[in-house]
Amino acid sequence: MATDPLSISSKDRNTLLVVTTLIVAVTFQAALNPPGGVWQDDKYDPEENCTVDPRSSANNCTVIARAGTSVLHSRAKIRYDTFIFVNTLAFSAATSTIFFLLLKSPFRTETLISIYCMNFAYVASVGAVQPQTPKTWAMLSGALSLPYIFRLPSIIKRSKEVQVAREQDVPQALPAVQRGAC
């Protein structure tokens, strides 16, 4: 299989689209339902003698974990951060592959909009199940952009090759001495 998305066969392109679509679906689902699940109720510090009034959001308790946040994040932050980083990297690599496979499609604008919206929805879902910190956002931004950054050198090389090919196809003007000879 060729590495240039413009020179692969239709069969290979379709196979890659199916595989990357499955990867996008699985990684998105894993972000919504992280390993260990999410807390179903707020978890309070058991050492405190406090009361929680379910009818009111006001209480004097220290919250250890909020309902809807990742259980794994509160119990093993490094493992959870590793999981989210590699899951996000796989998600982004799959969405960027879909984009590059459909680069010459007449629907490239719609594809790009869909991919960016999917990336934002992914980040929003991850942000919903873990505490939002600058480290979290930096990690997600890095993982989402890495596949595009890795592809950048090949895009630059390809655009230079296209530019050289165009320059070779353009007829050159005759030198001034030869123009007057006719």
Score class of each variant (00 low, 15 high):
P35Y: 00
K160W: 12
R79H: 09
P131I: 04
L16V: 04
N119P: 00
P175C: 06
V126H: 02
N33A: 11
K43A: 09
A143S: 05
C61K: 06
K157P: 00
A176I: 14
S10Q: 15
P131L: 06
I149L: 12
K135F: 10
A181S: 14
A2T: 14
T62G: 04
C61Q: 02
P5E: 04
I8R: 10
Y44I: 04
P35H: 03
I8G: 05
L6Y: 10
T136G: 06
N87H: 02
P131F: 03
A124S: 10
A124K: 12
N49Y: 08
R151Y: 10
I98S: 04
S10C: 07
V24Q: 00
P175Q: 10
A67D: 01
N33V: 13
Q178K: 15
P131A: 06
Y80V: 02
M118C: 09
T20F: 13
G68S: 05
L112E: 12
A25P: 02
Q29P: 00
D4M: 08
S141N: 10
S9C: 03
D41N: 14
S10M: 12
M139T: 09
E110P: 00
A94Q: 04
I149T: 10
G36D: 03
Q40L: 13
T15V: 12
F85N: 03
V126D: 00
D42A: 06
F150H: 05
V129K: 07
F107W: 10
N60A: 11
V164R: 15
P171G: 06
T136F: 09
V170C: 09
S92K: 03
N60D: 13
D4I: 07
W137H: 09
S141T: 13
A93H: 02
E161A: 15
T3Q: 15
L112N: 09
I149Y: 04
L144P: 00
D4N: 15
P106H: 11
A31H: 01
L103W: 11
E47Q: 14
S141A: 15
S92E: 01
D53T: 03
G142V: 10
K11G: 10
E48A: 13
S141E: 05
S154N: 14
V129Y: 00
R75H: 08
Q172P: 02
E48S: 08
A165P: 00
A58M: 12
